[in-house]
Design a protein around this nucleic acid. Sequence first.
DNA 1: GTGGTCTAGACCACT
DNA 2: GTGGTCTAGACCACA
Lengths: 132, 132, 132, 132
Amino acid sequence: MAIHSSKLFSIATGSSEPIYRQLVDQAQRLVAGGQLAPGDAMPSVREVAQALALNPMTVSKAYGILELEGVLTRKRGMGMFVADAPKGTHSVASRIELLRPTLERAALEARQLELDHDTVLTLFTKLLKEKQ
Amino acid sequence: MAIHSSKLFSIATGSSEPIYRQLVDQAQRLVAGGQLAPGDAMPSVREVAQALALNPMTVSKAYGILELEGVLTRKRGMGMFVADAPKGTHSVASRIELLRPTLERAALEARQLELDHDTVLTLFTKLLKEKQ
Amino acid sequence: MAIHSSKLFSIATGSSEPIYRQLVDQAQRLVAGGQLAPGDAMPSVREVAQALALNPMTVSKAYGILELEGVLTRKRGMGMFVADAPKGTHSVASRIELLRPTLERAALEARQLELDHDTVLTLFTKLLKEKQ
Amino acid sequence: MAIHSSKLFSIATGSSEPIYRQLVDQAQRLVAGGQLAPGDAMPSVREVAQALALNPMTVSKAYGILELEGVLTRKRGMGMFVADAPKGTHSVASRIELLRPTLERAALEARQLELDHDTVLTLFTKLLKEKQ
DNA sequence: GTGGTCTAGACCACT
DNA sequence: GTGGTCTAGACCACA
């Protein structure tokens, strides 16, 4: 057991985002960011379930989706492991594309609010530097 | 009927955000931004529903919420109109606050993707200027 | 309700293949074969569950996977629909590729059994014509 | 040690078929086909496990099943050998029956993909001749 | 030990 | 009406 689930995942019970989605998204970002490296063993379904006080099926659903997405691989009887990264997955170009939809939405909202570009960019720059 | 629903609203069917929420949020921004001025007639529920291929009840639900919020007023027999005193002011400060949550989310995702600020700001600036 | 689940799906309870997998595979082939055309409404989760005497969650899991794979799309509150086919999906070339792994396995087994090609092809031709 | 495990067995780790099952089925076919003759020494559990990067217990389980089925016999201190009177006959009729389930599945899939018989048979014939 | 499958049932959100 | 989420619990297969 290389990694403690209590350190890996944190779920927001109050959020409207489904728990399994929170787990999936966190795992994806941890892998994209390199905190989880290819070959690393994931904490077991039961361990995560116990640590976060969840039903094992909820965790299992998250792991299943991550497997379908190619982020994790299952070794039968041995648990889940971080998959070897498809080539180019971590390039800047591919990561910026993951951010594009959110930025497009922000641009649309800014236009609808008839906000000046400078005003928007000033706030966004400030937010990028914050909490860092 | 001054305004075409097809030009007013754009909904993302693939989004996880409920359609009625998308309509409500867009209407609020359009009013805050001044594209919808007090006294303007809103397109009818039926027209919006047809133009965007939505269930009329979905549009009706959005209009109902907007009426509850004081953004629209219902004139019996004549349809929905932008309210005379829409909630909140239209100052830049108040409008930028409507945009803040989206920008915060974008900033969070950018950090998690470990993207350089310049790269993000370059793309965002480009998107702001586009489709204008 | 355009399509009867009782006509669409048939599950083999005795099989070791999970029920949800049988549903996924059948749906994929029905879409690839054109029996299910883009835009067609799928029978509802509850209807399939009742028709096949399954738990709705089992059907839901199958639909969920098909959605992740891009075979189905969900219209909220309206059910599941066959997704618009990615271009070229229905060509003979692409369909035969879906069959290739199974044929490769059959060829491997035939070799290991040291069976004569004619013997194998005769049986296979008979099976192709059967149950048609 | 007459036979190299690396040449005997090929396992598909990605397959849903359990590894031990793949080993059992392949051994049965190789015996039925005559590539493994009565009295031949099987590669040791340890050797197979190392060559295929498997857990020795997995290989041992497969050998145990093959022994139960009468395909292999254990000579204490000397390892596993192909049994003198392996189960079933080696007639063409019996061997083709071992292949039938796989061919039936292929025929079913071909029908569901609405593939022309000639197209399917052409590919299958090519695959039979290949890698021979 | 590992994950997977399925059921039963409750509750929620969207259209 | 639609699908989604989550829980509780039982049972299975694999290594």
